[in-house]
Amino acid sequence: MEVIFSMAIGVLAGAGIYLLLRPRSFQVIMGLSLLSYAVNLFIFGMGRLATGAVPVLNGGVEGATYTDPVPQALVLTAIVIGFAVTALFLVVLLAARGLAGTDHVDSHEPEQE
C-alpha cells in the first residue's frame, strides 16, 4: 500500500510541477491544485497508513490498532485553506485575463521568433 500511495503522490506532484511551469495561467492553477492534492495526501501519510483502524480511542480499542487523528485534522485545515486561496487566485486570474486580454502569466504574449 505504501508503494502505491507514494507513487500516487509522486505522479500528482510531478504533473503539478510540470503544469506550474507552463506559461498559461489556467495551467498554473491546475498545477497548483494537483500539487496541493499531493501535499494533502503526503500530510495524511505522515500519520502512518493503516486500514480498518479507528481514529478515536474508545473503551474497547487496543492502543495498537488506531490511526493518528492529528494529520487528518491538519489535512482538513489544509484543504479548507487551499480551497479558499485557490478560489481567490481564480478571481485574480480572471481579472488578469480581462485586463490584459491574454492568459499568459506575464500578461503579454512573448514575441514570435
Binding site: L20, S25, V28, L32, L35, S36, V39, N40, F42, I43, A78, I81, V85, T86, L88, F89, V92, L93, A95, A96, L99, A100, V105, D106, S107
Partner: peptide, 20 residues
C-alpha cells in the same frame, strides 16, 4: 494584477512547501 498574480503563485507554492 500582473504583479499580484506572480506574488500569489510564489506564496502558494511556498505555503505547500511549508505544509510538507
Amino acid at each position: 494584477v500582473r504583479a499580484g498574480l506572480h506574488y500569489i503563485v510564489i506564496n502558494l507554492v511556498a505555503s505547500l512547501v511549508f505544509l510538507i
